[in-house]
Amino acid sequence: MMVFATLTIILVLLLIIASIIYKGLPALSWDMISQTPKGGYYFGKGGGILNAIIGSVYLSFGATFLALIVGLPVALYMNVFLVKHKKTVHALRFILDILWGIPSIVYGALGFIFMIWLGLKTSLLAGIITVTILIIPIMIRSMDEALKFVPRGLFESALSLGSTRSEISFKVFLRQCIPGIITAILLSFGRAIGDAAAVLFTTGYTDNIQGSLSHPAATLPLAIFFQLGSPVPEVKERAYASAMVLIMIILIISIAARIFSQKYYKDKIKF
């Protein structure tokens, strides 16, 4: 029975991937991923989803980069500067876990409030900021998981060599955990590219390829979502194809993350 339950989970995953590929592959064409929507695209005429692919890539890179700038220092701070304040670290982990649990639609709503408050329109920038906030907790917590296993002895010996704490952070901890940190970044990137609810309010949608930060941007999840809502069968087919593109991106990221974390076990100085 337990084996059965385990197999069920594996089967469901295979079923999901298989059904998307089964439906998406026939509709997938080079035009789909190399062109922007042409006139009448949403009634089944020519064009592709290049706008959404590019938009999603911009969005995810931007958000992951911002999240890294804020997230990495926090993760290091928790593990290097707060070593003797166990309680503070626990409280921080608690807050981060809670933030991780907040649904992305709530982040989207918050982003929207700030947009209105600042008098901004839906734009790539607003989307990047919202998604950044969404993925920061994920990034910090996964980095933290890697950093917290740096042994105390390594920390103490580096201190005894006369290094400052920030030197220890960036030269010892960061180096010891680099594969774990890259895994965390990839994980966050995957989350950023796949999320739809947070960008729904903030990023808007456009048929053009992104020109500037202050314009709306198309994203892949929303492209799928909108195309699926169309009554035209050809457009629905394209939604399946777009879904396949997205799932391929996610799978590649997932596998890359796995390879890095495997390497992590190989390269780490073991104690």
């Binding site: 594996i10 998307i20 999320d195 979502f225 799932i247 996610i250």
Partner: peptide
């Protein structure tokens, strides 16, 4: 070791994909 990536991938699949799968299956 086999299950860990299965779990990770399930967690990584975007919700819109789950939605598509829901409509299809």
């Amino acid at each position: 070791k086999i299950m860990q990536p299965v779990i990770d991938i399930l967690a990584g699949i975007p919700s819109v994909i789950y939605g598509v799968w829901g409509i299809l299956v």
